[in-house]
């Protein structure tokens, strides 16, 4: 299967200004040289703690952020900068779903207007399915029809069109966000913590639903999350991020069954288990990994100013690579 999107050596730096003349004296390396690719119809998980840079990657992918360097190849065409993305009409193919459905939906727009917005920019596709529809219509009737169709797909009644975001629960608003993202038949949806603000039962609704639209339409997801339980359930491949770097990358099974980087081990050991009988053992294991992390941190990272910078990834198996210690093969 070919890559839908390829990210090569992506760097996003934010300048730090200081001194009397406010000159750029340093860079915050939010994303520091990462490469990965997502295949069509698959879900790629991006896991890391707050400040790890995972959201920044998502933003550069949808065009909310211009990379400092590196390339983004979408379907073989370069779409690195916001300008290049504009030229390709890229955002009809790549959309985003946000964590906070409350603040990401304009409270003064009706649901109908919210969902119609991308259709007004990119037109109504004449077919259904990821990337489908070469002919695009800008006719108001077609837009209205497509909005109703989308509401049906996300399981909301037609009367929703005239209602406003505050009239819906968190789970429903998240579906509306998905409907908006689906409007133009995108091939990739970047979902940034799409369920972390939701209750368990509602979270299940949204996750099931995401899987269903993936099955039905062949959409790919970049699933950004800090919740390893959800990531394990949702993804085919995972990259673990720490301090702007990828420390480990592999299939979901690679990461969960054979973690190689100390940071990955630490993350995994921190997941609370539902198996009550193992909790003392888990706690003991976690303590061991914490100790190992504290002890070996220096070996796994080089010092870059004040930040610990992971080494470059080394391939372990064809699907699995990790930023191993120096000298470790």
């Amino acid at each position: 299967m070919s890559d839908l999107i390829r990210i090569e050596n992506l760097k996003v730096y934010y300048p730090v200004r200081s001194g009397f003349f406010n000159r750029v004296t340093d860079n915050i390396k939010a994303v520091d040289d990462v490469s990965f690719s997502i295949k069509a119809g698959q879900t790629y998980g991006l896991v890391g703690e707050s400040g790890s840079g995972k959201t920044t990657i998502g933003k550069s992918l949808v065009g909310l952020e211009d990379p400092t360097s590196g390339t983004i190849l979408f379907d073989g065409e370069e779409a690195t900068t916001i300008k290049q993305k504009k030229k390709l009409n890229y955002n009809k193919d790549v959309q985003m779903v946000f964590q906070d459905s409350q603040s990401s939906l304009n409270p003064r727009r009706s649901i109908g207007e919210i969902i119609a917005e991308p259709l007004k920019s990119f037109g109504v596709p004449n077919a259904i399915g990821a990337g489908a529809g070469d002919k695009r219509s800008f006719d108001q009737d077609d837009i209205d029809k497509r909005v109703l169709e989308l509401l049906e797909i996300v399981g909301l009644p037609a009367r929703t069109v005239t209602q406003y975001p505050f009239q819906f629960s968190g789970g429903q608003r998240q579906r509306i966000g998905v409907a908006r993202a689906l409007a133009t038949n995108p091939r990739l949806i970047v979902a940034d913590e799409p369920v972390s603000a939701l209750d368990l039962s509602v979270q299940a609704q949204v996750l099931n639903f995401m899987k269903k639209i993936q099955r039905d339409f062949g959409i790919s997801f970049l699933f950004i999350s800090h919740d390893l339980g959800v990531v394990k359930y949702m993804t085919d491949n995972i990259a673990i991020m720490h301090n702007g770097r990828f420390v480990e990358l592999g299939t979901t099974a690679d990461i969960f069954d054979d973690p190689r980087h100390i940071y990955t081990k630490r993350l995994l050991s921190a997941i609370p288990s539902l198996d009550v009988s193992k909790r003392d053992a888990n706690r003991a294991y976690r303590k061991r990994v914490e100790a190992e992390f504290a002890e070996n941190q220096a070996a796994y990272y080089e010092q870059d100013g004040l930040r610990a910078r992971a080494y470059d990834l080394k391939q372990i198996t064809p699907t699995h690579s990790a930023a191993l210690k120096k000298g470790e093969a």
Binding site: S201, A204, L207, N208, K232, Y233
Partner: peptide, 30 residues
């Protein structure tokens, strides 16, 4: 409680949690 949940709500919650569900299975959405 975790081994022998009784009330429908408790059981539903446990089935909605993705951590122990295999990727192929559907979560129980209340």
């Amino acid at each position: 409680l975790f081994n022998h949940p009784k009330h429908p709500y408790t059981r539903s919650l446990l089935r909605a949690d993705p951590s122990d569900v295999k990727p192929g299975e559907t979560l129980y959405a209340i």
